[in-house]
Design a protein around this nucleic acid. Structure first.
Lengths: 268, 268
DNA sequence: TGACATGGTGTACACGGTACACCTAGATTG
DNA sequence: CAATCTAGGTGTACCGTGTACACCATGTCA
């Protein structure tokens, strides 16, 4: 548009960028087509020349953010590499409070998403893990691969009046919760039960727990073959829940075997 | 209302139950105050005499479902007990496809929720785990404690035309993803990359991985004390990402120690 | 020069949550 | 027993939000 220089011509990129800015500033709820249009100094319907609909806009937003995740260098140590890459994703997505909700509600398979998934998968495979194990591990990571902790409690602290009452009743009615809350408070003085916990620490704890477990399975050349057969057995157990053995699964055995084998191997 | 027996008088319970039925039948999207009112043969605003607003209605729905989670018996084996309890939660929540979305978007701390959390926490504590470890483990479990897998891909398979193209381009552009997709297809003939995988199997794999890891940490009398100090160090490393040691964390060491110690202990 | 594509405009509608004033019948009480 | 209160159902109306659709302006190209 040459008529006047009074404003840049719109583009999908500009629309998406403005949407991100607005969601960052005022939260996802405040992001609507009208306010976004106003921000861009156009009429609402103008946006639809650049995005198909609001869903498409949201897809574009995560696409852009995910595309900016740092390509951390590979060192040859798969565990370290995976860890670094996931923390890089976290670093990026944490800056956009809305990203979690959008990713979980939509998660369209855009190129940048596939790219990230592919790269992460590649780190495991390059590390020598079997495709079989890697596949299950990717599932086990789930949303954690984006750097999200799995919030126990909604972000909203519930300001309704009954809440305080409940909180007061916690030690008597929910003693176990009170106990771990105390433990958390001890480690980190200014914390309640849910928020107040160091989100990053909890995240790394869980991530390392998973990756360390995976390392052991890998060392044991774990395969889903026997495991799935075992699960068929467990399935029948499940029907008769009081059968002895209910609730166990081969993984534990595998692990125990790993402990034993490890002693033989790298001994001392 | 005695005037005619033509309909039961409304109550919060009846409203919530009807809402659940409707969400079960036609999906969460189709649940709105008007259609729900029609189902109950009243005018929309009548509902507001029994629920404060739609959010409150949703809270009531999960409250009811969570309250129905089976109280699995304790056997004295904490790992088995946790596993059984979580699978019981899964069994219940899986019947309501909307529960995941509602739980993630709201997660108000209603009595039934607190009850479940408290009970689950108690299983760990009764098993002898420290409050410290239990606290972090509860975080690590996250939404998995409700029996949800952490979906990699949205449920919607995206019917847009570019999707097929992308799928075709998968082997060349995203070879690693193609590799694990093949592995999955091999194990389970009729599966693509995301859906088609046995959800329950993936869930149990991840759950066991976590619980087995926790068992080891527990055996090692893991404490967050040293670990948090280590993280402070890692924090400074993070600033200089190329520092050697970046991306490692003490948990791995703990585990390695566990392997070594295990050999000494239960030897052979 | 005239047709067309690209992109911004204006109007208007559907849908969903819910505020508010009202009404009605059973329960309560002087 | 009448006056009043209250719980619970009604009707109307409003607002916010996404978006269909017809239209119009401008730069491009045959």
């Amino acid at each position: 548009m040459s008529m006047t220089g009074r404003r840049e011509t719109l583009s999908r990129a500009r629309v998406v960028a403005a949407a991100i800015a607005q969601a960052d500033a005022n939260g996802l709820d405040s992001l609507n087509m009208r306010s976004l249009a106003q921000e861009l100094d156009v009429v609402p319907m103008a946006l639809y020349k650049h995005v198909a609909n609001k869903g498409d806009l949201l897809d574009g937003m995560i696409e852009l953010v995910v595309g900016e995740v740092e390509r951390t260098p590979q060192t040859g140590d798969w565990k370290r590499d995976v860890r670094a890459r996931i923390l890089a994703a976290r670093d990026r997505l944490q800056r956009h409070s809305w990203s979690r909700a959008v990713l979980e509600s939509r998660a369209a398979m855009t190129p940048a998403m596939l790219d990230y998934l592919n790269a992460l998968t590649g780190l495991f495979l390059d590390g020598g893990l079997s495709a079989d194990l890697t596949h299950h591990v990717m599932h086990a990571l789930g949303n954690r691969m984006w750097g999200f902790s799995q919030e126990l409690f909604a972000a909203t602290p519930r300001s309704d009046p009954s809440f305080e009452t409940q909180k007061a009743a916690l030690p008597t009615h929910f003693p176990h919760l009170a106990a771990i809350a105390r433990a958390a408070a001890q480690a980190d003085p200014e914390s309640g039960v849910g928020p107040g916990c160091d989100d990053r620490l909890e995240f790394e704890f869980a991530l390392d727990l998973l990756l360390d477990g995976v390392e052991i399975l890998h060392a044991q050349q774990w395969s889903s073959r026997g495991w799935m057969r075992a699960s068929a057995v467990a399935e029948s157990w499940r029907i008769q829940k009081d059968t002895p053995g209910y609730g166990t699964r081969e993984t534990a055995e595998t692990l125990r075997a790993a402990l034993t084998a490890a002693k033989r191997d790298r001994d001392m």
